[in-house]
């Protein structure tokens, strides 16, 4: 019975930390299961991918209600992601544990840096919201207003509409920004490059049992010009579909163990619920530094485990 308790605690911690720092928690579940409970990595990956799917569905449900998900964009990027997901999860059966540990360790280090940078960026956005404000989003404005503000338009909205000239209207949409209390329009560009990054995100998702938001969110935000909130919401929606692909292949390979998965899953749901309340109060630069250190520590431990320096 003690093992059941450990699994639930791991789930709670992963859900808690994951929701505070804004990631699925897959990056934390695999090291916790492999390093603390010494679970074989392939079964830890199977457990993780199911937990990632649950986290994704839960957060997507919230983001869909807030109209933050860009479904056409998500489905388009899902094509290369799914192909990557099939390749990644299919490869798991052929890779030995050492290689999986090395890939995971590298990815954890990268994820730590991403979380740190993301938190720094969101802090900067809160400090200087004027840079992100889209003054042309109000649909009630008439054409004269548009013309009079046209000179300021290009200067003020470089961040969101950086790709206006190459932007595709098919993916263009709008959302309501609660912080700015304004309806924001945005255009999406460079879908091809976003698709390439999504393909690699899919490979990592299938291979490492993670969501892949660490790659997708910066790709959508920086390359494609999608606002950070929409990028995060759309990425979450996509993760659910990618996780389906991976979990089907993990299922057929026999890497999903209910004895491991269900307790961790219950913990993750509970932890994520608590974390979503704590996130508002705790989110600051010190937290991101601590998280960065934790991720680097996990990464080093997994590297040591991969090379047999740290053995149990």
């Amino acid at each position: 019975m003690l093992i059941l308790l450990y699994l639930i605690i791991i789930g709670i911690l992963a859900g808690l930390v994951g929701s505070i720092i804004g990631i699925g928690g897959g990056v934390l579940i695999v090291p916790a299961l492999t390093l603390i409970l010494k679970v074989p990595i392939k079964y830890a990956l199977g457990t993780s991918i199911i937990c990632v799917m649950v986290t994704s569905l839960s957060t997507s449900s919230r983001f869909l209600r807030k109209n933050l998900v860009n479904i056409p964009l998500g489905l388009t990027l899902e094509i290369p992601t799914t192909i990557g997901g099939i390749i990644g999860s299919f490869s798991v059966a052929f890779l030995n544990n050492k290689i999986l540990f090395i890939i995971f360790a590298s990815f954890t280090a990268a994820a730590g840096i991403f979380v740190y940078v993301k938190n720094r960026l969101s802090l900067l956005q809160k400090k200087f919201p004027v840079n992100l404000k889209d003054n042309n989003s109000n649909n009630n404005n008439n054409n004269n207003n548009y013309n009079s503000s046209s000179n300021n338009y290009n200067n003020k909205n470089n961040n969101i509409n950086a790709n206006n000239k190459t932007g595709l209207s098919m993916f263009s949409s709008k959302y309501y920004d609660e912080n700015l209390r304004n309806e924001m329009n945005y255009k999406v560009g460079h879908t091809f490059y976003g698709g390439i990054v999504s393909f690699f995100a899919g490979i990592f998702s299938g291979l490492l049992g993670i969501g892949g938001g660490v790659l997708k969110v910066p790709a959508m935000n920086i390359i494609m010009g999608v606002p950070l909130k929409v990028a995060t919401a759309t990425s979450n929606y996509m993760i659910g579909i990618t996780a389906v692909v991976s979990s089907i292949i993990y299922f057929f390979n026999g890497y999903i163990n209910t004895g491991l998965t269900i307790p961790v899953l219950v913990g993750v749901v509970g932890g994520a619920t608590i974390g979503s309340y704590l996130a508002v109060k705790l989110k600051n630069i010190y937290i991101s530094i601590i998280i960065l250190l934790i991720f680097i520590l996990i990464s080093i431990t997994m590297f040591l485990r991969a090379f047999g320096i740290l053995s149990y």
Partner: peptide
């Protein structure tokens, strides 16, 4: 400028509440 600003959206009509 008008072309830049007037953005046609495709996903605003989908019942996201139902999906949620």
């Amino acid at each position: 400028v008008k072309n830049n600003i007037k953005i046609k959206t495709n996903n605003k009509k989908i019942n996201k509440n139902l999906l949620s």
